[in-house]
Amino acid sequence: MSRLLERSATLPPPIARQAPETPLALTHVTAHPRLRRSRWPARLDLLQSASGLFLALFLVAHMFFVSSILISQDAFYTVARFFEGAYFLATPQPWIVSCVVGGVLAVFVLHAWLALRKFPASFRQYQAFAEHRARLRHDDTGLWWLQLWTGFALFFLASIHLYGMLVHPELIGPYESADRVWTGSMWPLYLLLLFAAEIHGGIGLYRLALKWGWLPGGNPDAARRRLRRLKTAFSLFFIGLGLVSLLAYVRLGIAHAERAGERYAPSGDGTPATLAEGAAVTPVVVPSRRGG
């Protein structure tokens, strides 16, 4: 059939073909410029990827900042104050953190809004995809489903977290964060958020590469397999790092529970307050808070 159509190249141009009953009227319109299709779908598609990439890179950086608690409480304290401009300005300015969070929130909202275009828009669509996925048993189709659900969860989980950081930027520090995690009962949310974000981000980056054809090496199929392994490694690594960090905050939060609300002050003698203080890997007995 395709052959036949190709040979139809010598047929009259499409206008006459589409509206054979009104050919004369249409031939007079040719002076008007052709209605151009909107360029927005292209831009939105690019924005979807750009916002996703930004969020994923932010996620990576964020995870490294947060996990500085594993080095020492002072290390995390230093990172937190750094983002308040403490090392460039006279005094730490928490509103700088609010601005950064505001920016991330804006990208996040944009990304979620764009992602809505891809969500099943009705139960019929939902059912069609669910049935298709179950029957096809196809890895990448299943990954998209996972991305959809983790993305949906992020709507709520990430919003709560981002709002907290937006309005209380000054409450980021070893004790402050640990108190929020434990005494403030945020750890269940953070646990879910960790899994949702790392799974969603990992799959998102993988899809990003496929979507735009960034396939290192000569053989696209081999590159895809490699990327898929990389994606799994990405998610596992950051979930692991996140779990260990969250555990550190939980232990510190438990240890600091009676004095919840107390602000952290770095150890004055310059020796970093080690993990063993408060967030000990060995069972916590009574935490000693030197230099606190």
Partner: peptide, 19 residues
């Protein structure tokens, strides 16, 4: 070609599921 596939029912609708 953009006139033919430049929207969400065209190439931008593809979610790279690779089925």
């Amino acid at each position: 070609y953009y006139e033919l596939i430049g929207d969400d029912s065209g190439v931008f609708g593809c979610m790279s599921l690779l089925g």
